[in-house]
Design a protein around this nucleic acid. Structure first.
Lengths: 217, 217
DNA sequence: TAAAATATTTAGATACCTCTAATTTTAAAA
DNA sequence: TTTTAAAATTAGAGGTATCTAAATATTTTA
């Protein structure tokens, strides 16, 4: 169907396309794909020829409907494999991304539908991100950044924005995990850092942390 | 480490290298890889530069020790994934090969060691082929082709030589499966066909069948 | 708004893996 | 053993995905 590179580009465009009005810039895509802008231009033309993206020179790139659909199927596979790795193979949440990056490109409808069934149709991956179903539909959670809470507010940790191993290991070290209750004991106006209560410990965290934790109030 | 093509070539050479004295011919490898002889020559040179094979022009190609080791690790991964697909995801034995061809190239030591553990260290894949361990060691079964049995001999079906979906579906249709006892009721000298007893049914099978079934007496 | 800085695209080249067509080597047959 | 046939290799080229360097377009700044 599509090449490895093509699939990775579609996924990257999807992840960068936060505002549906603005196209994804060549440089942003180059940064995301760890490649050069000129390579991006070439690939984007190819994706455009295949009607996976809408592209006008110097105007940035948008996913077409079929491009979005393809991207969502890859994301579905990625997240299902992450669940498999954590729940069945004892991987920790900071180890799954790299392997899932490879597994997501395996081409078999049956493999994914059976895996989904085997895992009992999980709704979220180990980082709290939603798993699209076979039609590409997924629940958009109503979640808030911890950074946006104010003193004395509290909620449940439902996701992380930064999924780098470094950040995830930091969270592990401090017993911060999905599903736990977090309360803002104090917020420093100067730098935004917070004193938070999580289970029986209180902890001071910087905005590097609070801006990467999703809370459901 | 190695490219997809390189890994597939090593695997193909391993499978073709039945007699350790004779090198694998360019044409045989081209047939196995579904490619042209000229492409094989190019690739074999590249593998030789990387010391994965021993190659002298016009003399055929042999796996080096490191080439053999690499091939065995790919075969290990292939067969472990096959077990996973059959035992955990309800694939039938004629459906697993194609998907395992892709899964075998995922690069993660931990993935395979954890998968091995998850599957409880299986010794054989769904077709009865042995699964090499992490060191590349595996048990060579003492098995005989059904075709080599004579009248009134019997044994257990321990493997199949042809693993094509067509052959496997034929076996399924006739309730011929791994672990079952087969007895030779009669053997036709003219064409080698046999009347066999398998559980409560007797069945006449051609040499196309008997030459692809492994029996342990 | 003109100049400078930044972003993007184009041109030309490389690595990988493949192909066809032509050549060379080896093996088989007369 | 010479000829013929088969097998293997080389030469030259194409597609994919990438790169560097140069050119062009857009945006920012003065």
């Amino acid at each position: 169907m599509f090449s490895l590179s093509e699939e990775n580009y579609l996924k990257a465009i999807f992840h960068l396309q936060t505002h549906p009005k603005a196209g994804v810039s060549t440089n942003a895509l180059a940064e995301e794909m760890q490649t050069k802008a000129s390579s991006v231009t070439d690939m984007v033309k190819k994706l455009s020829d295949k009607h996976l993206v809408i592209y006008k020179k110097y105007q940035g790139v948008y996913l077409s409907d079929s491009g979005r659909e393809t991207a969502l199927q890859i994301i579905r596979k990625h997240r299902l494999w992450e669940v498999f790795l954590v729940e069945k193979l004892d991987f920790s949440w900071d180890e799954v991304h790299e392997v899932a990056e490879e597994l997501e490109h395996i081409k078999s409808e049956k493999l994914i539908s059976e895996l989904d069934k085997f895992l009992d149709y999980p709704k979220r991956d180990p980082h709290g991100d939603p798993i699209p179903d076979a039609h590409g539909d997924f629940q958009v959670a109503n979640k808030t950044l911890l950074a946006d809470l104010t003193k004395e507010e509290k909620g449940t940790l439902v996701g992380v924005k930064d999924t780098s191993p470094e950040f995830l290991k930091y969270l592990d070290k401090n017993n911060i995990a999905l599903g736990k209750t977090i309360e803002v004991l104090d917020k420093e106006e100067f730098d935004g850092s917070m004193l938070i209560q999580i289970e029986d410990q209180s902890l001071r965290v910087s905005t590097m942390v609070t801006a990467n934790i999703f809370i459901k109030i």
